[in-house]
Amino acid sequence: MDITIHHTFLPHTDPAESLAFYRDILGFEVRGDVGGGAMRWITVAPKGSDTSVVLTPPAANPGITEDERRTIAEMMAKGTYATLVLATPDLDEVFDTIQAAGAEVVQEPVDQPYGVRDCAFRDPAGNHVRFNEVK
Rank of each mutant, 00 (worst) to 15 (best):
A82L: 09
A45H: 06
V53H: 05
D67S: 05
G126Q: 11
A60Y: 09
F9P: 10
F21T: 14
G63T: 04
G36Q: 02
Y81Q: 12
V134K: 00
P58C: 02
A101S: 15
R69K: 08
G48D: 15
D118C: 06
E29K: 08
A20H: 03
Y81A: 13
A60N: 06
P11E: 01
L86N: 06
A77G: 13
H128E: 08
E108A: 10
P58K: 03
V105Q: 09
P109Y: 01
E29A: 05
R122M: 08
T51S: 10
T4Y: 02
P11S: 14
A87M: 04
P15D: 03
P89F: 04
I42N: 04
T13K: 04
R23M: 10
I42W: 01
F9C: 13
G63F: 12
D118G: 01
T13R: 07
R70I: 02
P113M: 10
A59Q: 02
A77K: 13
V30F: 02
L26Q: 08
A120S: 10
A100Y: 02
R23Q: 05
E108F: 00
V53P: 10
R23T: 05
E68C: 03
D33F: 12
S49F: 01
W41N: 04
S18D: 15
A82D: 15
A38H: 00
V105A: 01
V34Y: 02
T56D: 08
N132H: 15
I64V: 11
P89D: 07
E93D: 13
G63A: 11
V129S: 03
L86M: 14
E29M: 08
P89Y: 01
R70N: 03
Q107F: 00
E68D: 15
Q99D: 09
N132A: 06
Y81C: 07
S18K: 05
M39Y: 03
V106Y: 01
H6W: 00
T80N: 05
M1T: 13
P89G: 07
L55M: 08
H12R: 12
P89N: 11
P15F: 03
T13E: 03
F131I: 09
G48Y: 07
V94T: 15
